[in-house]
């Protein structure tokens, strides 16, 4: 499967896989929220599961589970990392 690596976002992560945030391209209050929760460039994030309609998406961030909507996740870019935990 070919996905432009530069354009990979948190919304593209399948459940169970992890990524490393490269940039947070969200503005306003949501940006502050996301950063206060510790989702910063360089932070590893794992997609834990998706809601029944595929949206929102639950992410594991620094030991806690945070759910965000897919359209917001599309603006958080990541680089994929190899999945060690299965």
């Amino acid at each position: 499967m070919e996905i432009g690596l530069a354009n990979l976002s948190l919304a593209d992560l399948p459940a169970g896989s992890a990524g490393c945030i490269t940039s947070v391209e969200v503005g306003g209050l949501l940006r502050r929220r996301i950063m206060d929760l510790g989702m910063l460039p360089g932070t590893q994030v794992r997609c834990v599961r998706k809601a029944p309609w595929g949206d929102p998406v639950a992410l594991q961030v620094r030991g806690s589970i945070i759910a965000l909507r897919a359209e917001d996740l599309r603006k958080i870019k990541i680089s994929p990392i190899i999945n060690r935990e299965g």
Partner: peptide, 10 residues
């Protein structure tokens, strides 16, 4: 609809 940040506590 605005964005939503929801924590799922253990």
């Amino acid at each position: 609809p605005s964005s939503m940040v929801l924590e799922l506590p253990p």
